[in-house]
Write a protein that binds this DNA or RNA. Structure first.
Lengths: 377, 377
DNA sequence: CTGTTAGCGCATTCAT
DNA sequence: ATGAATGCGCTAACAG
């Protein structure tokens, strides 16, 4: 009953015969074209690839046959000869956080612009899953791999190295100027934000992390850089620093409740930092549930920007990262390496910056007296 | 200077020799394993695929060689023989709207669960681009294709049909129970929403569409169903209905300004409907710029839900669609068709529903007197 | 139980 | 300027 194509007849000519010859597997091959044009397959190949000598007349005939039969040279067969698949792999942690969409968009656009096609896979934060994916990408003989995340360490990285498959960025723990640049930017923005919170008089700051998958080595080195800088700057200023991990896999409302109870807990913070764009919305809901106003009662900052941060009232202060641009550059770099060209730039132009909007303000003079903890209606 | 792997040596044994033999293209082949294990390639194949008879002792030897050499059978070579690529293509309109992320996630998860890998490509709303993609997917010999969008009509669809490549969902204009189900659900929710707006006393409603790419045949049939229902219900009730298209490719703030000026224009609406989750944020910014309060001055509804709709104050009324779930089911259906299995279900369980939250309220009694159109500070 | 052989579809010598 | 032959890496059919 369910039609997955069943209700479509193959295209037929006016005489009712199929326009496309029915080969066993349904695909027109170079041999069909050769036969139709009355030449050898070698000539067809030459004609179609503009490679070697082919008489103008013959070439025209071949092209005609090819297009009439709807010949689509198998990229898979071609890649066997060419040792080139025109395919790259993209490994992302998951496909929930919009930041991954931005990243993927950069990869897809850069790849597409150069005739490459993208294979996506998600590691779900699991080193084993990641390893599995890497094996698959090797089996697919992707010409390169873009790492949106990397949790497997050296052991996983070697599966690519063993097969000489180019990778960007070179995974952090394994040394890399690129990664250092990223961390540098990220740290600078984080530092700026932390100092601002201190200036605003906040005496306790809480980092809300979460949406972690079990089995992940957490925090990842990316997050670690944030955490450490925050800890460092705040500690130096004598400001209390706390971290709240939200259970992952629970519903949004439950997660928000977790936040809410953390908020109403004993030593509540006056400033909250969301570790990513996803928890930011959760945090806001939680804060709302607890009956707190932004920025009068509490200040809020989130990692990751989006139109929603601007649409929200008050507008939200964030640490913004041009994830899309980075992915674009990163992928361009990868493709250049694959094609044996010089790198398009000497490095990725990472830039993270603290965008202060209206969700950050002076710490409340007197800590709000904790009236009966907000009950949900 | 930029390291794309340059700083990593290939793994070496304690004797300093490469653990992995260096074949011309860098990949270990079945022949290497055969030689190493002292058997024929056929035996290796049988051992690795658990296919046919292989002596236990020999099998152990082969497995050892295989894993020691890091042999990863080329999926590309296998697919040549098997006439099966274990690959499906996913065509999405673009990778900006988060709804596409949800859709992709469903596809990726369903595919991954059955050992398939996903090739993503974006049509950018262009029929030509879409056609190009389809050709590429054919060339890649993907076992099937999931259409997140489809703008090319019959002509493009035939690219797939000619090559007997299964597709879900069967494109709308070409008849399809699935699509009818989708439209039905979507229409029902839209109708419910429209009627609610009428009940609330609104006398003019505006649909804000946009983020369209030039060259797109707009509105697509999906959007058309919304538009028509809206037009129908509102018209029947004598409520004015207007449509505003936001220019795409401009910055968020410019787009918001467009909305703002539309808002402050002569016959401003008291109810605004955002055609997708992306324009919803833009609409909110525009409304804010115009100095209007929700829901006192204007009511707002958006197509597409997300945590942000709940985090926003007031919480936003939306028409929610389980895009992820649909993609999951859709893909499962496709894979079943590919594998020659009976479909897992007799149809996709589409369910769109109007979730009324706090952004919709009674139309203001008296149309706000248009004080000097809000100037931006 | 194992090895030899024959393609899958294509690009590329090497002849002619 | 064109065709025949070879092989990319793998699996399946057929012989032993």
């Amino acid at each position: 009953m369910v039609a997955v194509m069943a209700d479509f007849d193959p295209p037929r000519g006016s005489d009712g015969r199929r326009l496309v010859p029915r080969r066993q597997n349904g695909f027109v091959t170079i041999r069909d074209v050769a036969a139709d044009a009355g030449v050898s397959i070698a000539t067809v190949s030459r004609a179609l690839n503009n490679n070697g000598y082919v008489a103008g007349e013959v070439k025209k005939r071949v092209l005609a046959s090819s297009s009439r039969l709807g010949f689509r040279p198998s990229e898979r067969a071609r890649s066997m000869r060419n040792l080139r698949t025109m395919t790259i792999g993209a490994i992302l942690p998951e496909l929930v956080n919009p930041v991954n969409l931005e990243f993927l968009r950069g990869i897809e656009e850069a790849a597409n612009a150069r005739g490459y096609v993208v294979l996506v896979a998600t590691s779900q934060g699991s080193p084993d899953k990641e390893r599995e994916i890497l094996h698959r990408l090797v089996a697919e003989r992707t010409d390169g791999v873009v790492l949106g995340t990397f949790v497997g360490g050296r052991r996983n990285f070697d599966v690519l190295a063993e097969h000489h498959i180019p990778v960007v960025p070179p995974p952090g723990p394994l040394s890399s100027a690129l990664n250092a640049a990223w961390t540098l930017e990220e740290s600078a923005a984080t530092r700026q934000m932390a100092e601002r919170l201190v200036d605003l008089g906040h005496r306790k700051v809480t980092l809300v992390s979460g949406h972690q998958t079990a089995g992940t080595r957490s925090p990842s080195y990316y997050r670690r850089s944030r955490y450490e800088v925050l800890r460092d700057v705040l500690g130096r200023a004598g400001v209390e620093f706390d971290v709240v991990m939200i259970t992952r896999g629970v519903s949004e409302t439950l997660a928000a409740d977790e936040v809410a109870s953390a908020v109403t807990a004993g030593s509540a913070s006056t400033a909250w930092v969301a570790a990513n764009h996803l928890v930011l919305s959760t945090l806001l809901i939680g804060l709302g549930t607890a009956g707190l106003n932004i920025p009068e009662d509490v200040s809020v900052v989130g990692y990751g920007d989006s139109p929603w941060a601007t649409a929200y009232r008050p507008t939200l202060s964030v640490i913004s990262h041009d994830t899309y641009g980075e992915a674009l550059e990163l992928t361009a770099m990868l493709l250049a390496a694959i094609d044996g060209e010089p790198p398009p730039s000497t490095g990725i132009n990472y830039k993270a910056r603290f965008v202060e909007r209206q969700s950050t303000g002076p710490a409340p003079i007197r800590r709000k007296s904790r009236r009966s903890s907000a009950h949900r209606p």
